[in-house]
Nucleic acid binder design. Structure first.
Length: 435
RNA sequence: GCGACCUCAAUGGGAAAC
C-alpha cells in the first residue's frame, strides 16, 4: 500500500490523474486494498484539477467500501469546492462533518476563510475568523495571509495593513508569502513605492524576497507601463542570484503586447528561450492576443499552431482571444470554426467565449444567429454542461452575474425582449435575486 | 514514546461592463 501510495502521488503531482487511476485499479486487482491515504491523494488531485465532482464520487466510494474518510479527506474536498467558488457547498460539508462528530481543525477553517476571501466575501471570512476564536482555534500566518490577500484584492489596502498590525500584536510572524501578498497587492494598485518599502521591510526582518516577490513587483511596474524600470528590476534580481522564470518574462512580454510593441515582445520571447526559460501557454496567449490586436490574424494562427506543435495545451483563454480577434474582423465563420475546434478537443467554451461570439454576431448584424446561440447556451444539454446558464446563474458570484446582465442588455437592445425575459425568469427560478 | 504517505495562503494571458 505504502509504495502504491507513493507512486500514485508521483503521477498526481505530475498532473497525470489517468495514470494514477490505472495504478489505483491495478493495486486492487493485485489484492492490495487502497487505504485512506490512497483515497486522500486521489481526491486531492481531482480537487486541484478542477474535478471536484469526481472527488465527491470517490468520497462516496470510500465510504461504501468501508474506508472511513478522515479530516484530511474533508479538508481536501472543502478546498476543492472553494477553488471552484462553491463556497456554500464547502460550508455545508464542514457543517456536516461537525454534526458527525468530527472537530474541524485549523486547516479546515483556513480553507474556508480563504474560500470566502477568494469570492470576495470578506464579511463572511471575518465572521469565520470570530468563530475560530470562539472555538479556541488560533489563527495562524495562513489565516491572516488569506485575509490580507482578500483585502488587497478588494482594494482595501488599509484594512490589509490593519491585519498586519494585528499579526504583530498577536506575535504571528509574517513570512515570505505574506510579504509577497502585500507587495503584489500594493503594486497592482500602482503604489510602487509602498511595495518597495514592504520589500525592504521584508529583507530587514530577515526574509529574502523570492522570484515570486519580484514578479509581483514587476507586474506593478508593467501596470503603469513603466517597462524600462521593470527591466531594471530583472537585472536587480539577477544580481541577487535569483533566476527570472516564465512568469517574470511573461509579465513583461504581456505588457509589451498590450502597448502594441510586438517587436520587443518577440525579442523577449527569444531571450527567454536563450536562457532556457520556455514559453508556456500563458506566454503564447499574450503573444497571440497581441497579434490579434494589431490585426495580424494569420500570424496569430501560425503562432498558435507552433505552440500546439510544441506540445503545449491550449485552453479557453487562448481560443477566446483568437475567436475575439476574428469576430472583431467580422470573420464570424472562422470564429465559429475555432469554436467547433475547441469543443472537439474537449476544451469547454465558457461565458466569456460565448459573450465574445454573441457580440461578434451582433456586430455583424446577424442577430438571428446570436439568438440561436443564446438558446443553445440556455437549453442544449449536449454542449458542455458547464456552459449552460444553470452553472452561470447558480454560482453567481458578482462577476458572473454581470455577464448575465450584459447578455440581457444586449438582448434588450436588439429587441429580443422575449429571450431576455426567458433568461430573466430562469434566473428567478434559480433563486437568484436580480438587482 | 517518537517519527511516518494525503489537506490550507502569494506572481503573468481572454470579451463586455463599470
Amino acid at each position: 500500500v505504502y509504495s502504491y501510495n507513493i507512486l500514485i502521488r508521483g503521477f498526481c503531482s505530475w498532473g497525470d490523474i489517468s495514470r494514477s487511476l490505472k495504478l489505483f485499479d491495478s493495486m486492487q486487482s493485485s489484492g492490495c486494498s487502497p487505504n485512506y491515504v490512497t483515497y486522500n491523494t486521489l481526491i486531492d488531485s481531482f480537487c486541484k484539477n478542477g474535478c471536484v465532482d469526481d472527488a465527491l464520487k470517490l468520497l462516496n466510494q470510500m465510504r461504501s467500501r468501508g474506508v472511513p474518510p478522515n479530516l484530511v479527506t474533508f479538508n481536501a474536498t472543502v478546498n476543492g469546492l472553494c477553488r471552484e467558488k462553491r463556497v456554500e457547498e464547502a460550508r455545508k460539508v464542514v457543517d456536516e462533518i461537525i454534526s458527525s462528530g468530527i472537530v474541524p481543525d485549523k486547516i479546515t477553517y483556513n480553507t474556508l476563510v480563504n474560500g470566502y476571501c477568494k469570492v470576495g466575501n470578506l464579511h463572511e471570512a471575518l465572521i469565520l475568523l470570530e468563530e475560530m476564536a470562539q472555538k479556541g482555534v488560533a489563527p495562524n500566518v495562513v489565516t491572516y495571509t488569506s485575509i490580507i490577500d482578500g483585502m488587497c484584492k478588494a482594494g482595501n489596502l488599509r484594512k490589509a495593513l490593519d491585519f498586519v498590525s494585528r499579526m504583530r500584536e498577536r506575535d504571528v510572524k509574517l513570512n515570505e508569502i505574506t510579504y509577497t501578498t502585500l507587495i503584489g497587492g500594493f503594486s497592482k494598485r500602482g503604489f510602487l513605492d509602498d511595495a518597495k518599502l514592504i520589500m525592504n521591510e521584508m529583507v530587514e526582518s530577515g526574509i529574502l524576497p523570492s522570484v515570486v516577490s519580484y514578479n509581483a513587483l514587476i507586474n506593478g511596474y508593467c501596470g503603469l507601463e513603466r517597462l524600462d524600470e521593470a527591466l531594471e528590476i530583472i537585472t536587480e534580481m539577477e544580481g541577487k542570484g535569483l533566476v527570472p522564470d516564465v512568469v517574470t518574462y511573461s509579465t513583461l512580454l504581456g505588457a509589451y503586447c498590450r502597448m502594441g510593441d510586438l517587436e520587443m515582445a518577440f525579442q523577449l520571447n527569444e531571450e527567454m528561450a536563450k536562457k532556457n526559460v520556455f514559453p508556456d501557454d500563458v506566454t503564447y496567449s499574450s503573444l497571440v492576443k497581441g497579434l490579434c490586436d494589431v490585426g495580424r490574424l494569420s500570424d496569430a494562427l501560425d503562432l498558435f499552431s507552433k505552440m500546439l506543435s510544441l506540445g503545449l495545451c491550449p485552453d479557453q483563454l487562448i481560443y477566446t482571444a483568437l475567436i475575439d480577434g476574428y469576430c472583431k474582423e467580422g470573420n464570424t465563420n472562422k470564429a465559429f470554426s475555432l469554436h467547433d475546434e475547441m469543443v472537439k478537443k474537449g476544451i469547454l467554451p465558457d461565458v466569456v467565449t460565448y459573450s465574445v461570439l454573441i457580440n461578434g454576431l451582433q456586430k455583424v448584424a446577424r442577430t438571428k444567429e446570436a439568438k440561436k446561440l443564446l438558446f443553445r447556451l440556455h437549453f442544449q444539454d449536449n454542449i458542455p454542461d458547464k456552459v449552460v446558464y444553470d452553472s452561470l446563474i447558480e454560482c453567481c458570484s458578482k462577476t458572473k452575474f454581470r455577464n448575465v446582465v450584459s447578455l440581457l442588455k444586449g438582448l434588450c437592445m436588439k429587441d429580443l425582449i422575449d429571450e431576455a425575459d426567458n433568461v430573466f425568469s430562469s434566473m428567478l427560478e434559480k433563486n437568484v435575486k436580480p438587482d
